[in-house]
């Protein structure tokens, strides 16, 4: 049985294909203005990687911000449940998940089977989001991929008091004018992000093991700052961006089995 999990986020779209609980292939594409096309593009890429065709997919679950507009999805499930399920698949011991996506940030607690027990989300402001890092990288004229590494070179943190993207940007501009090194500014920016997401984590309570998912998990600077505050080293998968899509594929498998079971009992 082959199933698909499609996670359409605000900045990127991911598809994971799964056969009998094993990941066959995955893809990550940037979200365009059209969520439906993004979903198709991501799925086509994943199908190419696995060398199978669209007709082989028996069930599809869509998740993420754009989940309601994935045309070929059989069902849509919130990204909160999918992230918990996906994190549980990758790390069965995980109980606390911090998902830092492109446009929002979530703190999730789950149980031993990956069911959500407590969650809080910040989707009101850009603090702790990929977009925030994007803006800062742009102001400092450094590639997004490098800002984590650069920040580690800092000997001290520059003071960035605001976690608001608009205000932090103007603070960063004035720090640049003063000649503060980029590494120290970035370290300060990461500190501001970590402070904000730590407050969110405290709302749900932190329990071992702890995992960070979403694109920001690739930013070693933020990860270190969050680890310092939590007092625990986070687990991070090889590809933290696809955790939600993995969860969606797992839901798809479960729902597909249920649907088949129903069909069978009907025909008897």
């Amino acid at each position: 049985m082959i199933v698909a999990g499609v996670d359409i986020g605000s900045l990127s779209g991911e598809t994971v294909l799964m056969r009998d609980g094993e990941i066959l292939s995955y893809s990550i594409v940037r979200t365009g203005a059209d969520s439906a096309k993004t979903a198709e593009k991501a799925t086509d890429e994943a199908l190419d990687n696995a060398s199978i065709s669209f007709g082989d997919i028996e069930y599809t679950v869509a998740t993420g911000y754009g989940r309601v507009i994935v045309p070929f999805a059989d069902k849509n499930i919130t990204e909160i449940s999918c992230h918990a399920r996906g994190a549980n698949y990758l790390f069965p011991t995980v109980r606390t998940i911090l998902d830092m996506g492109g446009q929002d940030c979530k703190a999730i607690k789950c149980n031993d089977v990956g069911k959500v027990t407590n969650f809080a989300m910040n989707d009101k402001c850009a603090a702790g989001t990929g977009r925030f890092c994007d803006v800062m990288a742009e102001v400092l004229d450094e590639p997004l991929e490098d800002i984590g590494r650069i920040s580690l070179e800092a000997e001290r943190d520059a003071m960035v008091s605001s976690a608001c993207a608009v205000f932090a940007k103007s603070e960063v501009v004035s720090l640049l004018r003063k000649g503060t090194p980029k590494s120290e500014i970035l370290s300060g920016v990461h500190e501001a992000i970590a402070t904000r997401v730590f407050a969110l984590l405290q709302r749900v309570g932190i329990e071992a093991d702890f995992v960070i998912t979403g694109g920001i998990a690739k930013n070693i600077g933020v990860v270190r700052k969050v680890a310092e505050k939590v007092g625990m080293n986070p687990l991070i998968s090889d590809e933290p961006q696809i955790v939600g899509a993995i969860g969606a594929a797992l839901f798809a498998e479960e729902l597909c089995k249920k649907a088949k079971h129903k069909d069978r009992s009907k025909s008897q």
């Binding site: 959500v116 027990t117 809080a120 989300m121 407050a199």
Partner: peptide, 16 residues
């Protein structure tokens, strides 16, 4: 599942 709807802003915690 315990769900926290709301946010923290400059004036305090607002969660249902």
């Amino acid at each position: 599942m315990i769900v926290n709807y709301g946010y923290t802003d400059g004036s305090g915690d607002y969660y249902i």
